[in-house]
Structures are given as structure tokens and as C-alpha cells.
């Protein structure tokens, strides 16, 4: 009897998993702009997806190396913690003037040290915060704080793919630090691939 109960649970779990896989689709697309070099800092994301999403337990990393933040743009789910690591021989600081990250200032620290911040302030759909170093004013990076985990950073050619999206209708948007935001309505179908293109303007 105990074996048959276990078998039942396993079978039901498999069916549920198969069901959930079968109900997911993906969005694939391309973002274009007259200057290709601008594309690498583009984030594509779903505005809003029903439900609550738990942030990852693992921290994301933003490195400070050769007087540059890396990555330049870091999209993340609200509640995610970012470790700011100093790889340089010189001291760095990280602060933001943006309310979306409570205008934090993590202070100044030397090579090899990490200071962390959790981006837990919820805003409507999305918001961003610029990361600056007051020791080196030319350094700049952006954290894009999102409501859900369905987002992607485009590659150097502007291509992107968002996978495992639940079936449904969504607003797909593009974020860029210098270019105008764009949005499109998209439908994600069961096991389907929705293709989208964005043409950005300044």
C-alpha cells in the first residue's frame, strides 16, 4: 500500500511537471538601433506577470575593474542582493542618487573587498538605479529592478530570448539608459515561440 501511494505521488508529480512545461512558451527577438554599439546595454523584460516571485538566494556580482563597472547594466528581480567587488588597486565607492535604491552610499573600500546591497524596493513594473563611484566620476552602471524573472539582456547584435514564460498575454518592454523605452503587446502560446522586433529611437 505504501509503495502504491509513493507511485501515485510520483506519477502525479510527473504529470504536473509535464503540464507546466507544456504551458510555457518563449519570446525571441531582435532590438535594432542605428548605432550597434548602443545595443549591449539594452534590457528586454515583461512588464508584469501575475504572482509573487522569490528573489534568488545567490547574490549577483557587479565588479569594479579597470575603473569600469562590469556589467554596465544589471537587470534583476526585486529583492535580489548584489555584491559590489573591488578588483582594482585603487579604492572605489558605490552610491546612487536614485530613490528606487534609497539613495544608498556603501562607502569606500579597497581591493578585494565586497559590499552588498539588496534591491528590495518595489516599484510599479520596473525601475532603475544608477550606480556611481564618487572617487571616479566617469564610472557608471545601471541596475534595473524588475517585478518578475522574465527578462533578458540583448547580445551585441541585439538578439534576445526569454524562455519558460507562462502562456498568456503580456506587455513586453525595452529599457535602455539613453534611448527611449518601447513596449509591445505579445501573446505567448503553449510551446510556442513568439517573435518580436524593436527599433529604438533616441
Amino acid at each position: 500500500m505504501k509503495h502504491s501511494q509513493t507511485l501515485f505521488v510520483v506519477i502525479m508529480s510527473l504529470l504536473i511537471m509535464m503540464g507546466s512545461i507544456a504551458q510555457a512558451g518563449s519570446i525571441k527577438g531582435k532590438v535594432t538601433y542605428k548605432k550597434k554599439k548602443y545595443l549591449k546595454t539594452t534590457v528586454v523584460y515583461i512588464d508584469s506577470v501575475a504572482g509573487e516571485f522569490s528573489p534568488p538566494k545567490e547574490h549577483l556580482l557587479m565588479n569594479q575593474e579597470n575603473l569600469v563597472f562590469s556589467p554596465k547594466v544589471l537587470p534583476l528581480l526585486v529583492g535580489t542582493t548584489v555584491d559590489f567587488y573591488n578588483s582594482d588597486e585603487v579604492a572605489h565607492n558605490v552610491f546612487t542618487p536614485d530613490k528606487s535604491a534609497d539613495k544608498f552610499n556603501l562607502g569606500t573600500w579597497p581591493k578585494g573587498e565586497i559590499r552588498s546591497y539588496t534591491f528590495d524596493k518595489k516599484c510599479e513594473n520596473t525601475c532603475d538605479a544608477v550606480m556611481l563611484c564618487n572617487v571616479h566620476p566617469e564610472m557608471e552602471a545601471f541596475v534595473v529592478i524588475l517585478q518578475n524573472p522574465y527578462f533578458a539582456t540583448v547580445d551585441k547584435d541585439g538578439n534576445f530570448e526569454i524562455e519558460d514564460l507562462p502562456e498568456g498575454k503580456y506587455t513586453l518592454s525595452v529599457w535602455h539608459p539613453k534611448l527611449k523605452s518601447e513596449s509591445q503587446e505579445v501573446s505567448v502560446v503553449d510551446e510556442g515561440m513568439t517573435e518580436v522586433t524593436f527599433s529604438l529611437k533616441k
Binding site: K34, V130, P137, E138, K178, K202
Partner: peptide, 24 residues
Amino acid sequence: ADQTKDEPVSLGSESYKRVFPKAV
């Protein structure tokens, strides 16, 4: 800026405009 091919040397990121007057 779009027409400039020569990559300029930044003396402060554009976002520092938001920090003014607490920064140059």
C-alpha cells in the same frame, strides 16, 4: 554624440547631472 566616431574621455558620467549640486 551619435555622430562622433572618436570615443570621448569622460570627465564624469552623464548620470552625475542628477547628483548636482553635490558634484561637478
